[in-house]
Computed example of a mutant assay.
Amino acid sequence: MKKIAYILVMCLGVWCAGCSENGDDGYYDDFYRVYFPVDSLNYAFGDKPVEMAKYTVKVPVQILGEPARADMKVNVKVDLASTTATAEAYTAVPSEITIPKDSIVGYVPVEIIRENVMDERDTVFRVVLQLEASPDFALGVKEGLRATVTFSNYLAEPEWWVGLKDVFWGPYQKEKYQKMMEIWGGPITLDDYVYKMVKLINVAKEMYEYFQEHPEYGMEFPPYIFWPYE
C-alpha cells in the first residue's frame, strides 16, 4: 500500500512539473506570453484591380494560454535592418496593438501602398516585425517572435498579348491587363484568346473605354481602332 501511495505522489509531482513548463526558462512565471503563430505572409498586387491603391495585411499575434483578462497591449517594432521595403511602400506600423478582452488574438496592421511598390520582375519586398515585451505581456517561444510580410506588384505579360496589340490593345501595360482580368473574371489564357476571341475583343473594348475616361493612367493605344463587335 505504501508503495502505491509513493508512486501516486511521484506521478503527481511529475504532472505538476509538466504543467509548469512555459517560456524560454521552462517554467510558468504568472506572465501572459505572446508570439506570432504565422511567421510569413505574402501579398501580390499584380493581378488585382487597377483601382486598388492600398492593402492592409493583418499579422496575427497570439497569446499562449488563457484569453486576455482585459484589453491588453502588445509592443511591436519593425526590424529595419532586415526590412527591404522603402518607408514609402508601407504606412508606419503601430508600435503597440491591443488584444481585446476574452480574446487570444490581436493583429498588427501592415498597410502597403501600391504606387510605391516597384513592378519589376522577381522583385519582392519585405517588412520584418519583431515582438517586444510590454507591461501586459512577456515574450513566448523564441521561434515565434518575428514575422515577415512580403509583397510585390509584378504582372507578367500574357503570351497572347502580342497578337493583336497593334490592332486593339496597344503595347503591354499591366494596368490594361489588370482591368481586362477584372472584367473577364480572372486570368485570360492562350486558349481563351484562340477560342473566345469575340468575348476577348469586347472585354478589350470595355477596357479601352475605361482608360479613355481615365487618362490619368497614361495608357497607350493604336491611333485608330475599329471595334468589330457591339
Rank of each mutant, 00 (worst) to 15 (best):
D39N: 15
K196L: 01
V50R: 01
I63D: 00
C19H: 10
G218I: 12
E230M: 05
E216Q: 15
I7V: 15
C19D: 12
N153Y: 01
I113G: 00
W227E: 11
T84N: 12
F168Y: 15
A87C: 00
M207W: 04
L41V: 15
L164C: 07
E88A: 15
P228Y: 06
K3W: 09
V117G: 00
V57L: 03
W169G: 05
Y229I: 06
G18M: 13
T189N: 05
A70H: 11
F36G: 04
E216H: 06
F31H: 08
F168R: 05
E115I: 04
A5L: 14
M1K: 05
E157C: 11
P60C: 04
S40Q: 13
V57Y: 01
K101I: 08
G140N: 10
A204H: 02
Q173R: 07
G26A: 03
D29T: 14
N42A: 13
I113A: 04
F211E: 14
A44H: 11
V93E: 05
A44W: 05
F226D: 15
F31G: 00
V194W: 06
K176N: 09
V162E: 15
M197T: 14
R69C: 01
V93Q: 07
V105W: 03
Y27N: 10
V38Q: 13
V117H: 01
G18K: 06
W15N: 06
V61L: 04
V38M: 10
K205Y: 11
P171N: 10
M181S: 03
V198D: 12
M118D: 13
E111T: 15
V167W: 02
L200G: 07
K199H: 09
C16A: 13
V9C: 09
D39L: 09
V59L: 07
V74E: 00
V108T: 09
L8Q: 09
A138R: 12
M52K: 10
